[in-house]
Amino acid sequence: MRAVVTVIGKDRTGIIYNVSKILAENSVNIEDISQTVMHDFFTMIMLVDMTNMSVDFNILKAALEEVGETIGMSIRIQHEDLFNAMHTI
């Protein structure tokens, strides 16, 4: 099962490090990353594979939100299905 991680906020050092650390610790594999910085505003979207995930989805979600608060970014994780449903025919 795959999910989309969205990270939005003011650019700073260590964003990818902090997010990918949580993912790695929970055996979540990153399949794709795209990011952009516009006017100091950082936006990153990760496609992750949760097949071998070692924790419950809710725990991973809470961990990501917690790290988001620490580094001052908004971090969301949502099942990929929602985006595919809304944007593909």
Partner: peptide
């Protein structure tokens, strides 16, 4: 994976 802007559009729809 849905395109970059599609993901952001969905997130914006929900958040804002």
């Amino acid at each position: 994976m849905a395109m970059f802007k599609d993901v952001l559009e969905t997130v914006r729809m929900i958040e804002k």
